[in-house]
């Protein structure tokens, strides 16, 4: 039970070395998304910060008209605080500014689930989630 996870984490750590700020919990979350991405597409070779950044800024259709993009609430700069539609501040998404971002797997699952539906009208793929975290970990 422990061994495959260890291998996955080691694999993920190697794959994302240099691109992300290291945190064992975040690495484990990325490793899980990497395994899911690999299962969905055998040609998966790793997450991309550039793809994650483009996804963060992209304008989507299918979700709520008020929130067509991640940036609608999080703001254009990941290092800056965002603001909810109810006027409450959102801590910066950039891991350099909010170090505990993407270290709680339940929280990560809950917020991707809600916000992907709200912005894109669908769940996000493991590739999109992994790219997103990889991008934010490098910010």
């Amino acid at each position: 039970m422990r061994k495959p996870l260890t291998i996955l984490i080691a694999l993920a750590t190697t794959m994302f070395a240099g691109a992300t700020l290291a945190d064992p919990a975040r690495d484990a979350i990325l490793a899980k998304f990497a395994a899911e991405a690999k299962a969905a597409d055998p040609g998966f070779t790793g997450f991309s910060a550039a793809r994650g950044g483009a996804f963060f800024r992209a304008s989507q259709t299918g979700g709520s008209a008020e929130t067509p993009s991640c940036t609608s609430c999080h703001g254009a700069a990941p290092q800056d605080a965002g603001k909810t539609r109810a006027n409450k501040a959102i801590a910066p998404m950039a891991v350099s500014k909010t170090p505990d971002r993407f270290t709680d797997s339940d929280k990560v699952a809950q917020w991707f689930d809600r916000n992907c539906k709200g912005v894109a009208g669908r769940v996000c793929t493991p590739l999109e989630k992994g790219d997103f975290i990889t991008f934010m970990a490098g910010q």
Binding site: S64, E66, T67, R85, A86, Q110, D113, R114
Partner: peptide
């Protein structure tokens, strides 16, 4: 209120 705020 226009947001998906669903919880587990």
């Amino acid at each position: 209120f226009g947001e998906d705020a669903s919880l587990p």
